[in-house]
């Protein structure tokens, strides 16, 4: 195997891996039903997809100015796309009517102690959904609560 073929195989492998993640991201964004789940899938394409595709292209190019610019693209994306995911999630939480179908996990300290009795460690079992609080009221509260918290700081 000459050096040219090794470089080709490495670059092709990275490129195909990146494309695989991108296909997964688009597939996931189309198959999920809720917008918050779709953000998960889209974020995977934004970070891993760009990373592997750009790495593959950098291997193809070698050391040059273009590889540096592609590296800057990766850097910018890894800084910026989580922020855009956060903004979209905030938009969703503030404007969606049916958000209450997602179970809200919330355990106050008093409830925890009341529920568990004595001898429970501090960071206890937080996987019990509070079924009574799902619904439009909680959605309204959580939405405006997020808005208030975000606006306070």
């Amino acid at each position: 195997m000459t050096g040219g073929w090794i470089r080709f195989l490495a670059a092709a492998g990275l490129l195909l891996l990146g494309l695989f993640f991108e296909v997964l991201a688009v597939f996931g964004a189309n198959r999920f039903k809720k917008a918050l789940n779709r953000i998960h899938a889209a974020a995977m394409g934004d970070t891993l997809g760009i990373l592997f595709v750009s790495l593959g292209l950098m291997v193809m190019r070698g050391f040059s100015m273009d590889s540096l610019k592609l590296f800057l693209v990766i850097l910018f994306f890894w800084l910026a796309s989580p922020v855009s995911g956060h903004m979209i999630a905030r938009l969703e939480a503030m404007t969606n009517q049916n958000l209450g179908e997602i179970a809200v996990i919330r355990m106050e300290k008093e409830d925890r102690e009341k529920a568990a009795g004595s001898g429970r460690p501090g960071g206890g079992d937080e996987s019990l959904p509070d079924a009574a609080e799902t619904g439009p009221e909680e959605k309204g509260k959580s939405g405006s609560g997020k808005g208030r918290k975000g606006a306070e700081k």
């Binding site: 688009v26 889209a42 760009i50 292209l57 592609l70 855009s84 979209i88 938009l91 404007t95």
Partner: peptide
């Protein structure tokens, strides 16, 4: 819903960036 559309537009932008890099 509006969030789904914004997600799709963001993803279109990302895919276009990959496309332009491969084109170059």
């Amino acid at each position: 819903g509006i969030s789904d559309r914004v997600i799709a537009v963001n993803m279109i932008g990302t895919i276009i960036i990959m496309l332009i890099a491969i084109l170059s």
